[in-house]
């Protein structure tokens, strides 16, 4: 490689890769905090669902049984709101406006961009979880039971599965379709995913297909992990399968422009 004929320019080069990823992570977090409609779905809706359904006589049992049922469901909804709705829609618009393409010619590697998005999703979920736990403990007397460590594992698996679904939509559909689809699926999952309503409240024709969807797998695995009876292995395996299938499909089909 011959040197440039003029030497007034310093030799340009890429910044250390950790620096590029940290910068991108900071930008992703900043943007996530500025998207009002995204905060509505990640913070306001799960909190509201928890408070409203604690006050409604829909879920059977006393207050203790109620919060033991509702909190894992709402945590599952919080995970879906961040990894499916918020991540999916934001990424769809990044793609629509050409931001993903533009980043493709900078020194930030593709996996670095993905890492930044993962850190952002996990940070938002940590804040959601903390908020929901505090409300459950302070106002509804929730006490931890079962295995918190297994619950954490289930939440990470759920994040992987729903982030896979969000990215699958963002990388293949038009931005408007992802916007509508992610919100629609979220609503559907809250209703028939065992989030605020036990699945056995539904007739068999809804219950059977609903059981194999990733939402029910996540809410059931999380609820059982946090119960004295211990984790439901079937739900855990089903969630793992969804996570693998959705992430692999998203990775194989994702279109950057």
């Amino acid at each position: 490689m011959s040197a440039p004929t003029t030497t007034t320019n310093t030799t340009p080069g890429a910044a250390p890769v950790t620096q590029t990823i940290l910068a991108q992570t900071r930008a992703e977090l900043t943007m996530a905090l500025r998207r009002g409609e995204s905060l509505l779905v990640t913070i306001v809706i799960p909190t509201g669902l928890l408070i409203v359904f604690m006050g409604l006589p829909i879920v059977p049992g006393g207050s203790g049984a109620k919060i033991a049922f509702l909190l894992p469901g709402i945590l599952a909804a919080a995970i879906m709101s961040t990894s499916l709705v918020s991540l999916g829609i934001a990424t769809a618009y990044d793609r629509y406006y050409g931001s993903l393409k533009r980043l493709g010619s900078t020194p930030l590697p593709r996996w670095g961009l993905i890492a930044a998005k993962i850190v952002t999703v996990l940070a938002i979920e940590a804040a959601q979880t903390l908020l929901l736990l505090l409300i459950a403990i302070i106002f509804f007397g929730w006490r931890p039971a079962g295995s918190p460590l297994l619950a954490l594992l289930v939440m990470l698996l759920g994040t992987a599965a729903f982030a896979g679904l969000g990215m699958l939509m963002a990388g293949n559909l038009r931005a408007e379709a992802t916007l509508a689809g992610a919100n629609g699926l979220f609503l559907l999952f809250v209703i028939i995913g065992g989030i605020v309503l036990p699945l056995d409240h539904w007739p068999g024709i809804i219950q059977l297909p609903a059981q194999v969807l990733p939402a029910a797998a996540l809410s059931d695995a999380l609820r059982s992990a946090l119960s004295p009876a211990g984790i439901n292995g079937g739900s855990l395996l089903l969630l793992l399968a969804w996570a693998v299938v959705l992430l692999v499909t998203a990775a194989l089909t994702f279109k950057w422009e």
Binding site: G13, A15, T20, A27, M31, R35, D94, Y97, S99, K101
Partner: peptide
């Protein structure tokens, strides 16, 4: 391909961090 939710300066500073 610019980010709507960042300011002009924030976006330029982000890209600046990509280079040595």
């Amino acid at each position: 391909g610019i980010y709507n939710y960042l300011t002009t300066r924030e976006l330029l500073e982000l890209f600046a961090r990509f280079y040595r």
